[in-house]
């Protein structure tokens, strides 16, 4: 059980690092995307489309096996999973930021200018609070999806919770041959316990800030 928790810790660590990176990069990219520069728009569309249609597993394989072969870069399994999840998360996050930014009416800018605020004041007091309210529930949702997707990293050899579970089953094959049911049920519940509070929080915030 303790070993399972340790495995979950690895999964959570990878997802948290990637979440921080992707929120940071996503906000930058999302703001750039609202500038309406056709060149940037084209690039970001292609980027978003790639992320949208490529399974994360395929991306993991490309970075972990492909990059070594083609570019001679040898990433460790953990580093390549962080790269992939940040790559994916940045795309999702930037799309959310873009949506939130473009969802704000011009009237908000105009009326705050009319009240005599300068651009900085407008952003700090009017625009950013509104964006945050729209963005925070959605990005919390993204975090739970990240945590769930990290279960894939086992496929490139990181020892996280599922792998630990398999090891436990293998180790106790003789003494308790039916361990698989219990172990996988436990993992199932562990993931649920990790994600459910977060998704509740996101729902709660969404309701609270609806207007």
């Amino acid at each position: 059980m303790l070993r399972l928790l340790g495995g979950l810790g690895v999964a959570l660590r990878i997802s948290l690092i990637s979440v921080v990176i992707s929120i940071f990069l996503g906000i930058i990219l999302g703001s750039i995307m609202t500038l309406k520069n056709p060149f940037i728009n084209a690039i970001s569309r292609v980027y978003l489309e790639i992320v949208r249609i490529m399974p994360q597993m395929v991306l993991l394989f490309i970075v972990f096996f492909g990059a070594t072969k083609v570019l001679g870069l040898n990433f460790s399994a953990e580093l390549s999973s962080i790269i992939v999840f940040s790559f994916w998360g940045t795309a999702e996050m930037s799309d959310l930021v873009r949506g939130a930014l473009s969802g704000i009416d011009t009237i908000q800018y105009e009326s705050s200018y009319a009240l005599g605020m300068n651009t900085t004041q407008t952003y700090i007091h009017v625009i950013i609070p509104q964006i945050l309210r729209r963005l925070i529930p959605l990005s919390i949702n993204l975090i739970t999806r990240m945590i769930k997707t990290t279960s894939l990293v086992m496929m490139i050899g990181i020892v996280e919770v599922l792998k630990v579970g398999q090891q436990i089953i293998e180790a106790n094959r003789k003494s308790s041959p039916n361990a698989a049911f219990g172990v996988f049920a436990t993992i199932f519940l562990l993931y649920f316990l990790a994600c459910y509070p977060i998704s509740c929080l996101s729902k709660y915030l969404e309701k609270k800030w609806e207007n």
Binding site: L152, A180, F181, F184, I187, F188
Partner: peptide, 21 residues
Amino acid sequence: ELFRNTPLLVQLFFVYFGLPK
């Protein structure tokens, strides 16, 4: 809630390896 908050991989492992037991 149960299925939205758990990864597919875990669900599959549970059904494929866990349930036969």
